[in-house]
Design a protein around this nucleic acid. Structure first.
Lengths: 156, 156
DNA sequence: GTCAGTGCAAAAGTTTTGCATACAG
DNA sequence: CTGTATGCAAAACTTTTGCACTGAC
């Protein structure tokens, strides 16, 4: 029972291996697992969370937190993953292979909702151009209270 | 020779004192200096930078880094200042009394250019509404290479 | 005088690094 | 085999906290 998503994953993996090869890096078990975890859990991970999740799901594999950090940084540098900053509380990572999108973050429960808006993207390009800026990317985060937490608030 | 900006600063200060009073907090020398520094330097500070700048400009005042952190956090909680996250590298603070704006950040030199765009703001409101989100704020950062660094790049 | 604020140093997090060992190519 | 990757522990940072003392009200 092959899911259609696997095709996507195969492509991602292929791309990953190619980048490794191009940079004379090695395709290790740890790197594979980290990539797979990022892919199969449609979530945003802190390095620490990812580390514990790997230990949980792959008890056989001996991973160190350092490897998780190293790999995530490597993935980000190769544009495979991207990160979102949370001030003092560190970063959360996600794969960057999805169609572009931005994030709406709940201040209460930290849940992240993804969205995408062409109109805003276009406007951003224009703004950058007007100011002699060569745009390479952007980060847009909307903060607020998600539907669920709005209800919880009322109960307080 | 009173600058017109001083009127603005006076208002800011008044507001600050009022908030302090309302919360039974004290108006200390350290707090005043931190506010003034944030105001008079039209920059975005990391707590550390601010700390050293204060030591430099006010050698008489004995400040601790802890106080800088405490004050910045307090200012942020009272909505007098806001912060921008920079991943692992911490936060930068600025006063929040300016008209709302967003930031364009140069990946090379970390310079921050401010801008403002009503069209995007409106669109954001709409997006949040569509998803049952109660919007309380947002962060938009455009990344790229500023004009200056584009030139430097060519010389490399 | 009282109680919040401060500096200092210690502590708590988070992320990175050094090094000997393991393992991919 | 060679040299990169890894785990571990130590180090490096950044931010927060505990405490005795200072200073605002």
């Amino acid at each position: 029972m092959k899911k259609i998503e696997n095709v996507e994953y195969d492509k991602l993996l292929e791309n990953f291996k190619e980048i490794l090869k191009r940079n004379k890096l090695k395709y290790t078990n740890q790197r594979e697992i980290i990539l797979k975890m990022l892919y199969s859990n449609n979530e945003h991970f802190t390095p620490e969370k990812l580390y514990f999740l790997i230990k949980e799901k792959h008890p056989g594999l001996n991973v160190g937190i350092a490897t998780v950090y190293r790999t995530l940084n490597m993935l980000e540098e190769s544009d495979i993953a991207t990160s979102i900053s949370f001030g003092t509380q560190g970063k959360k990572f996600e794969l960057g292979n999805k169609p572009h999108h931005d994030h709406m973050i709940c201040k209460k429960c930290s849940e992240i909702i993804e969205f995408e808006d062409k109109a805003i993207e276009k406007r951003q390009e224009q703004i950058a151009k007007e100011r002699g800026f060569k745009l390479t990317g952007h980060l847009m985060q909307l903060y607020g209270i998600c539907g669920k937490c709005q209800q919880t608030d009322m109960e307080e």
